[in-house]
């Protein structure tokens, strides 16, 4: 099962993840996003991409192949990181 963690300090309660998730995985509780049904997460990572605060962390997701990222960009990122 996919495990979702929300950085409560970073989350600004915008609710974008709640709106975007087709499976209703998230709910807003006291203006902070909370994964109430993580068992329904299919690992599409839409919420991850849409979160403006980058407050979400998913564990146990099957990563898809990302061949659209060029090797040049990867090399540059590796140098920076």
């Amino acid at each position: 099962m996919i495990e979702i963690r929300v950085d409560e300090e970073a989350c600004n309660g915008c609710g974008l993840c709640v709106k975007d998730c087709p499976m209703g995985v998230f709910e807003l509780k006291s203006s902070v996003s909370s994964p109430v049904h993580p068992e329904n997460c299919m690992g599409c990572l839409s919420c991850h991409e849409i979160c403006p605060a980058q407050a979400l962390e998913h564990r146990g997701v099957v990563p898809c192949r990302r061949m659209y990222v060029s090797m040049k960009v990867c090399r540059m990122l590796n140098r920076v990181i």
């Binding site: 087709p22 299919m42 690992g43 599409c44 990572l45 839409s46 991850h48 991409e49 997701v61 099957v62 990563p63 898809c64």
Partner: peptide
């Protein structure tokens, strides 16, 4: 198509 995402689509 139910949902599209960067890592998977339903």
């Amino acid at each position: 198509i139910i949902h599209t995402g960067p890592n998977a689509c339903l």
